[in-house]
Amino acid sequence: MTRGDADRSPDGNPHLSVKNVGQVFAGTQGGQHDVRALGGIDLDCTAGEFLAVIGPSGCGKSTLLDIVAGVLPPTEGTVLFEGHEVCGKVPEGIGVVFQEDASFPWLSVWDNVAFGLRYRGYEAAEIRRRVEHAIGFMGLAGFARHTPAQLSGGMRQRVCIARTLVLQPRLILLDEPFAALDQQTRLLMGEELLRLWRETQATVLLITHSLDEATMLADRVGVMSARPGRFIEFLVTEWPQDRDSQIFGHPRFGEITARLWSSLRAESLRSMGGNPSPAAAAEPSNGADQVPRRGASEAGARR
């Protein structure tokens, strides 16, 4: 795993480093039904990188995110965030947005967004400044006094993103945050996420099922194998930083998604218990082989 100095944090370490992480969930009957969810994950993220992770259902994507967040201790390997080991609790500087609506229905939008700050000893003026900025940034200014029940699914997810944003995380973990939204809202939310990423300069790790979403949003896309999950390939998108959903029209967009699908199809079939057809293993004929590829153990690209 060789990387240039510019890929690393000022202290010379990757911003996020996942080293040989594995996860086994204990089953019943003396370990006979243990489930190996992850097997030997290696991943480095540079500061400010946008990395998307795709993989077949049940391959351990969300488990990986839980481990990186510090919510779940890995059974093997280590996770380093800014050079410090993540173990047992969520480190300061990491923010997480989940697929499920995690807003608190008994609080208003304003109180939901302010929730994390209130119990960390911030002064009222600082809380107000950060919350008003986050609410404005996420387009919720007119809804600050509404409760989540009065909002659409997309708006509730924006509340959750704003709640994470006010804590000014340096690493944002997103676990399929737009999965429950319709296609148009997903695209718009994707644009907002890119705007957020550009403004905060945070490192983003996005777990998604959607090839289009991964291709549009990420600098680099990691493809995971069927369970036990491990990275089988990384693709570098080489998009400009100020991209938006217009990038769908770019000729390379189709090439990248086709390349991703060719990697993912065989794994998806394997996870469903089928065998990949010869066509699945074949290289795509639409020029996708022109997309920069990196091996599973290879480090990521820079913007």
Binding site: G70, V71, V90, E92, V96, E100, A102, T164
Partner: peptide
């Protein structure tokens, strides 16, 4: 909902704050 527990962990709430709020 288990998501509340996860959200509390990621917001780094103490056990008392989680129980109370």
């Amino acid at each position: 909902r288990p998501i509340y527990r996860k959200a509390a962990l990621t917001l780094r709430l103490s056990g008392r704050v989680y129980a109370q709020h």
